[in-house]
Every structure is written in structure tokens, then in C-alpha cells.
Design a protein around this nucleic acid. Structure first.
Lengths: 189, 189
DNA sequence: AAAATAAATCAACACCATGTTGACGAAATA
DNA sequence: TATTTCGTCAACATGGTGTTGATTTATTTT
């Protein structure tokens, strides 16, 4: 067995919540260790027992989000969901709007979106390879960067603007845009 | 007449060059005023005579880039270049690769790309409105966010990776991707 | 050319977040 | 119960910050 010490679980929990609260108002680079600890009502020295920087704490939050929501994409071979794979990520984001707005939005860590981008790449590109076996995988990878960046921009706009568009409508537009965009691979080379 | 004092011109110039040098290795949020001044061999107190933060200095650099390269897009009505308007921005970036890699890349200010995005929006969308008078401008604005984000991602990838692709090939792919993507507007609503 | 104005330098200052330490009490574990 | 681990607290040196006043140098004005 050997569970983690409950004191440690508590400390990490309140530190995470404190950082998320602070991140509503400023970027991760502007957050100080002191204000996290003040917000969490935890001694500053305790912070250093678990993390070195606020960004370390943020990365832990990000990792937990991936473990709890997106980890199955690593073994994407086994699954057979309805709809595209980007649609799955979209569903995860819809189910965690508050959190995603913070960790993926303006005040989050840009590297985090890159991680997700690379996690999704194989499954997305595999689908396209089936659609277009005659075109180079290299070219489809190229298109993937384009489609992912565009899709994430629209999703973040939607989260930040509390858009009138329904989630289903947004999902459909993302699907259509991705469909048309990846047709461009025909004219590569 | 009344030119700016040459002492001021010199100070600002070396501070700008120093910041650009420092930004090759770290993000703007991690740059200290002290290291800028050390690099520029300028007294730290002098920095405060002209700027309050390193970001202020960066914004001045960004503004100069816009004034010298992209200002004419504000009065885009008058011009009649060959090719699309995104292609014009692409040309500017090609002509200033070193600078753009710094101020638009990973270590730059994310807000800067947003500024350019909004500068380019009217001319791009106007073109599309001509192509698709039957579709709502609102929808074409939507597609624009997607196309701009995707295009910028590919351009930055190209700058950062010193890609084997020629500039002309990249431009053609951007054109084709934008063309196909904006066809998706047909299926909106 | 001389006087007046503006800019840059320099030293000094208080301020604050940082990272670390050692001592102590409380909680968890064996 | 005995031991280990964790959180707290006070203290410290460090380093960047933002400001001040005095001084020197460069530019502009008269």
C-alpha cells in the first residue's frame, strides 16, 4: 500500500488551488512564491520542500490534467471513439472549461499546448493517411501543425469570450475547417 | 526641425540591441533591467529615464518594426500588391528573419502577434467577402482567426527550424491551406 | 562664445522576493 | 512506544528594484 502522507496531499492541494486562483489575474511568469503561499496559507519554506518554482507547481497541475483526461491518447491504438480525435480533446476541454481556460489560456504555459499537440499528432495523422494513402506522411504532418494551431485558437477564443455559439456548433466548425484544410495536401509539391 | 538629442538616440539604440541579444536566450519575462544595462554598457539609472520595464523596451522595438514594415496595412485601401495580403506579411518576415524570430518566436511577446493579426484582418476578410458575397462577414472573420493562427504556426516553425523548404514553397503552401480552409465557410450555420 | 538646458553617470538608499538554514512541535509510520 | 517525516517559524545573506541627489558631459539657445 503506502499511501502518500496526508499532510503532503493537503499541502500540494492548497498550493495548486492557490496558484490557479492567482493565475486568473496574471501570467505564470509574474507569480511569486510568496503570494502563492500567502493565498494558500502555507509557510513559504514548505513550498521549497515540494517545488523550486511556481512553474514547477503549474507543470504538476498540467500533468494531472493529462493523466486524468488525455492519458489514453498515448495508447490511441486501442480505442475506437466516434468522431475525430481532435473532437475528443475538445470534449475534455468542454468538461473542464474553468481549468483549461487558466492553464491553456493567456496566463498559462505555452509549452503545455505544444505537449498536447504532439500527443494528438499520431492519431490525427493516421486518420488522414487512411484518407489519402497517396500523399506523404511528412506533408500530412505539416498540415497537422496548421490545423491544430487554428483549432486551438478558435477553442481558446470560445472559452475566453463565453461565445454565444453552442459547443456542438463549435465542434462542427472545427471539423469542417480541418476537413477542408487538409485537402490542401493534394497541392503540395 | 528639432531632431531628437543624439545622446538619447544612442542610448535607445544600444538598449534595443542589448535586449534583442538577451532575448535569444530567455523570454522577456525573465530579462532583468540590470542585465540589459550591463550588456548595453549603460548606467541602470539611465534605463529608467526612458522605460519602466524591459517589456516597454520590447514594445518600442515592436512598434518600430510595424512603423517601418507594416504601417501601410493601416491604409490598405490604397495599395494594390500582387498576391494576398498575408503574403505581404510573409514577405516582411522573410526580409527580417533574425528580428522576427526574436520578437515573434518563443521568447517574444505573445500580444505582438495579436496586434498583427488585427492589423491584417480587414484586408484579408475583404478579399474573401469579394469571393463569397453570399456568406456572412461574421463567419469569414471566424475563419480568419483559424487561418492566421495556422499560418503563423507554420511560419514560426520555418524560422525556428531553418527548414529545407524554400520561402517560395512555404508561401505557396500557406496560400493553398488558406484557400481550402476558407472554403469551409460554406458549411457554417 | 557663453549661458542655459538636457542627458548620462555614479553612489547610496530602502524595499522586497528569494533560497537556505537550524530549531522546534506535530503528524504519520514502524 | 520509538522513529521518521513534515510543516512552521525566525533568521540570514543575496540580488534586482526603483528612487534620490550630486556631478559631469553633451546639446541647444541666446
Amino acid at each position: 500500500m503506502a499511501f502518500t502522507d496526508n499532510r503532503v496531499r493537503f499541502t500540494k492541494m492548497v498550493l495548486q488551488q492557490a496558484l490557479l486562483k492567482v493565475l486568473k489575474n496574471k501570467r505564470i511568469d509574474q507569480v511569486t512564491i510568496k503570494e502563492i503561499c500567502d493565498e494558500a496559507q502555507v509557510n513559504r519554506g514548505t513550498f521549497y520542500l515540494h517545488y523550486a518554482t511556481p512553474n514547477d507547481l503549474l507543470m504538476e497541475i498540467e500533468q494531472q490534467f493529462i493523466d486524468e483526461n488525455l492519458a489514453h491518447f498515448s495508447s490511441y491504438m486501442e480505442k475506437n471513439y466516434e468522431g475525430g480525435h481532435l473532437a475528443d480533446v475538445f470534449r475534455c476541454i468542454m468538461e473542464n472549461q474553468e481549468l483549461c481556460l487558466i492553464i491553456m489560456g493567456k496566463n498559462g504555459n505555452p509549452r503545455f499546448l505544444m505537449r498536447i499537440q504532439e500527443m494528438m499528432r499520431p492519431s490525427m495523422v493516421d486518420d488522414w493517411v487512411k484518407d489519402f494513402p497517396q500523399y506523404k506522411r511528412e506533408h500530412l504532418n505539416y498540415v497537422y501543425d496548421y490545423v491544430f494551431a487554428g483549432s486551438m485558437r478558435l477553442i481558446l477564443n470560445w472559452l475566453e469570450n463565453e461565445n454565444s455559439l453552442s459547443a456542438a456548433d463549435l465542434a462542427r466548425r472545427l471539423d469542417r475547417l480541418g476537413h477542408y484544410a487538409h485537402l490542401a495536401v493534394q497541392e503540395f509539391d
